[in-house]
């Protein structure tokens, strides 16, 4: 695989990340409304197939296979989160994850063509996801600390750490920075 193909695989991966973000976003709204999170919501993973709309992806069987794999991967992660994660039910979190997904999907079209204009959206989307999930993890730790501070002088159970989607998203977002490392291979596009 040459660098361009590796970058395209990475972009297909990021689109699957966008579909997971959309799943968590929708799940957050449902949790906020006090509703159960249906397992069929994981079908949003189908969005991971969007890169197949691009000629640059379709012309390589490896890229088609990678896209299909990432779709199944996104479906698996979404189902795992639906079953095991504590969805916080914060509408603003939903908004931010929707924004991340929009940025990644907007960037996809031109990023697979190796154009800077696509990479721009891709970079901001990925960094925003890393910032979002990183801050949520710090907040989780602060919450644990607060719990123990409030426990001073009282008998308390150990803090119940729960898996939150941000932990999964943070880990999954790290490999998505790959195209950024190869930004010099991109070229300027002309738009009006």
């Amino acid at each position: 695989m040459n660098t361009a193909e590796k970058v395209r695989v990475s972009i297909a991966y990021a689109v699957s990340l966008a579909s997971i973000s959309l799943f968590v976003s929708a799940a957050n709204v449902l949790a906020w409304l006090g509703m159960e999170i249906p397992r069929f919501l994981a079908a949003l993973a189908i969005i991971s197939l969007v890169p197949l709309l691009s000629d640059d992806i379709r012309k390589s069987s490896k890229l088609i296979a990678a896209t299909a794999f990432f779709t199944i991967f996104a479906l698996g992660v979404s189902l795992f989160l639906a079953d095991h994660a504590r969805i916080p039910g914060d509408p603003m979190d939903s908004f931010i994850l929707l924004l991340v997904a929009s940025l990644l999907l907007t960037g996809m079209k031109n990023a697979v063509k190796m154009l800077y204009s696509g990479l721009s959206f891709y970079i901001v989307g990925t960094f925003l996801l890393l910032a979002f999930s990183g801050i949520k993890i710090i907040i989780l730790l602060a919450d644990a600390l607060d719990y123990y501070v409030n426990c001073i002088g009282e008998v308390c159970d150990p803090y119940g750490f729960a898996l939150i989607p941000s932990i999964v998203l943070f880990i999954l977002a790290i490999p998505a920075v790959y195209p950024y490392r190869h930004r010099n291979e991109f070229r300027r596009g002309v738009e009006r």
Binding site: Y116, V124, G189
Partner: peptide, 27 residues
């Protein structure tokens, strides 16, 4: 011409974008 090789131009292209700029700021 949009975009550019340097990171500042690329980020500016999105964070000062007509539609994405304000939502990114709010986030």
């Amino acid at each position: 011409n949009v975009g550019g090789a340097n990171i500042t131009d690329m980020i500016d292209h999105v964070v000062t974008h007509r539609y994405f700029g304000i939502p990114i700021f709010i986030a």
